[in-house]
Amino acid sequence: MKVFDCPVIGPRPISEFDYIGEVRRPPMDADEPTWAAYVFNRQGAPGLLREWWYHRPTGRWYVMERDTLKDEVVRFIDLEEVRYDIPA
């Protein structure tokens, strides 16, 4: 079972985390094919992927950049980097 070496709470087993998937940004005002591709397609090729992970015991969110070929976490992403504005 994988262990994440969290910068805040130290090494924790993956069973404490929920995997939410790739970090994505909805394409606002997209045409139909673009929107459909966003909703239904996921980046599946092995390589670097930014992923949402939720640590249930603490309710804390992490974005990790993971090499999905080697299953290695390359770095933890500053959450500021994944922010986007929604139309209000």
Partner: peptide, 13 residues
């Protein structure tokens, strides 16, 4: 639902 709301807080800043 709690999880989804908490993620939106993060990603929408």
């Amino acid at each position: 639902t709690f999880r989804t709301l908490s993620r939106h807080i993060v990603e929408w800043g």
